[in-house]
Design a protein around this nucleic acid. Structure first.
Lengths: 146, 146
DNA sequence: CTAAGATTGTTGATGACTCAAGTATACCAG
DNA sequence: CTGGTATACTTGAGTCATCAACAATCTTAG
């Protein structure tokens, strides 16, 4: 129970700080950042909204709105899928990739400072492996994109 | 970096599930619950809004709004402080205490199921002590109520 | 081909928080 | 007592996410 409370508190404090930094310096939320990161790593820099939603742990409509913002900013574009007219891809633009690199630097620095620097490598591994055991999201919808 | 990502994901999944359960079954958010719990444990079942805010990691205005809701539901009351007219106490009502007990059961069960059951006691301790090292909230404003 | 059902995505209403600004009170120096 | 500053709290406006309802498309079965 203590551990759970710690998780709650530490997460809040951490994301609050990092989010504030990201928003302040680059106008991106943590989720914006994560989405752009996923897109950058995806083949052809594009993903379906559904897959994005599952990865970032947002609902479908959350993703729609998030991508609305990124589109307006010019960081992503829509693209139709040729084989399935229901799906709309989100594609990271060059501008978006640029932005991601820019924001990435300070974000990573922030994570290091607020998070990683407080632990040894070994502890980080322990933490990662323990946390990995937690539920990924209700069901096992983890057959993602690779 | 992996560890950090794990923290993000696991927290989201976890609080989402628990919050949904709490809201669904009892109409309370996790923060509502935490606030009521703090009040229940406080001397005379009352606390200043400021202290509440610090404990739950919300802003002052967040607390105002949260308490608005709890007041409307009849779970807390306001009380003036006799020695300092600026402060308004939040006091847990009997009804609130009752509600807390009720909600507590299923919430604790949920935490056990989704969180604690996945670890050994030792791991929980490890986790708690590691997480405790993370920033508590920007500064060390931890001189609370006791 | 048509009807039923599942999947993808969007939209409207709502809720929970934040920040910035404002009010009221307290405390401290002169 | 007066003025300045800090503290406690509230309010207005905006953001980010949710859910529920909906439209469009795909799939499967008769």
């Amino acid at each position: 129970m203590e551990a759970f409370a710690s998780l709650l508190r530490s997460h809040s404090a951490l994301t609050r700080a990092l989010n504030a930094q990201l928003v302040g310096d680059h106008g991106l939320t943590i989720n914006d950042y994560e989405v752009m990161l996923l897109l950058a790593r995806a083949p052809e820099r594009r993903l379906r909204r559904v897959d994005l939603a599952a990865s970032v742990l947002l609902t479908a409509s959350g993703i729609t709105r998030l991508l609305d913002g990124l589109e307006r900013a010019g960081y992503v574009n829509k693209a139709r899928c040729e084989t399935d007219a229901r799906v709309t891809y989100a594609v990271l633009t060059d501008e978006g990739l640029e932005k991601l690199r820019e924001a990435g630097e300070s974000h990573v620095a922030g994570v290091r400072e607020l998070f990683e620097s407080r632990f040894t490598d070994e502890e980080l591994q322990t933490l990662a492996s323990l946390l990995a055991r937690l539920p990924a999201e209700g069901d096992g919808a983890a057959c993602s994109v690779d």
